[in-house]
Amino acid sequence: MSDGIRATVSFADPGTCPIANASRSTEGPIEQVSTSVALPDSDGSVSEFMADSDLDDVPRVEPVFSYGEATLYRVSHDGSADCPCETLGEFDCPVHRYVAEDGTLTLVFHAPEFETLQGIMDTFREEYPPVDVQRLLQPPLEGSPEDRVFVNRGRLTNRQREVLRVAFEMGYFRRPKGANATEIADALGIAQSTFTEHLVAAQRKLLTDILD
């Protein structure tokens, strides 16, 4: 059996996702989410989550019972895919973790192979733009789970990526240097200060992914 790919994807506008909608009314994120099999005499499945807030006015969200100040809520799914969580069900991909906060949704899920992941991401981008791919992991990998990070090149502007590429190709990062900042700026046709500005901005974005 393939180890598959573990993806972390965030949605600023996750459609009609009831859990994301409920998170607009809670003081903190909704993180304790579980999905069960279909209830008796039901054609769909249910998701359940804990929240400290009153969510009686949120569509499709029903209270089940209370634990002191917290309440267990239930969302029923009828089999139609109108939010990212249900879309994953169409691809038979299990969800490892849900996090909903202020209307945004982050999903950690497992895809069996890259082709399935491509199909999922194509659907996500078509149905729920914008989509932010935060991490992709494909085991087996060396190091601890904390060492396995996905560097998102999409965070770089075209100019920042060009500056990094030319600097790398001209040996700016070698020791001793193959070229200095002035030489690389001349090759790019920009001022040295502009080269430095783009380089620092690009490095900051990449290091944020690596060190976060």
Rank of each mutant, 00 (worst) to 15 (best):
M1T: 13
A201H: 04
S53Y: 01
D82Q: 07
L199C: 01
P40R: 03
E197V: 00
R175T: 01
R175V: 02
T196I: 04
R6T: 03
E127K: 11
L199T: 01
R74K: 09
A12G: 14
Y98H: 15
F150Y: 13
Y98M: 11
G44N: 02
I120V: 15
L156I: 09
I190C: 05
L136R: 11
P139A: 14
E183D: 06
H198G: 01
P139G: 10
S2N: 03
T71W: 03
V200S: 05
E162R: 14
L199F: 04
E197Q: 10
N21C: 15
M121N: 09
P84M: 05
A111F: 14
V108Y: 02
A191Y: 00
T157K: 05
C93L: 03
C17H: 02
F114Y: 09
E142W: 10
K177I: 02
H77K: 00
A22R: 04
G154F: 06
T182M: 01
V163Q: 04
V163W: 07
R24C: 13
F49S: 07
L105D: 10
P14F: 07
D209Y: 04
G178P: 08
P139L: 11
R161S: 11
G79F: 01
A51C: 06
E146A: 13
P63D: 08
A100C: 13
G119V: 09
P129V: 14
L39N: 08
F49L: 15
G4E: 04
C17N: 14
D13K: 15
P129N: 13
L136E: 13
V99I: 02
A179K: 07
G68Q: 12
L39I: 06
F114R: 10
E101S: 11
V166M: 05
E27D: 15
R97T: 12
E48N: 07
P29H: 03
D132Q: 12
E162I: 03
T26S: 12
L107C: 09
A51W: 06
Q192V: 12
T208S: 13
A22P: 10
R159H: 05
G143L: 05
V99D: 04
R6N: 10
R165D: 14
I210M: 14
G119I: 08
R155H: 11
P59N: 09
R175I: 00
L206Q: 06
F11R: 08
I5Q: 02
R155F: 08
D13Q: 14
V64I: 06
G154Q: 11
G68A: 06
S144D: 15
D54Y: 01
E27G: 12
K177D: 00
G143V: 09
R148K: 08
T16F: 14
A202V: 12
A38K: 05
F65G: 01
P40Y: 11
T106D: 12
T8H: 03
V37R: 07
D52P: 02
E183Y: 05
A191M: 00
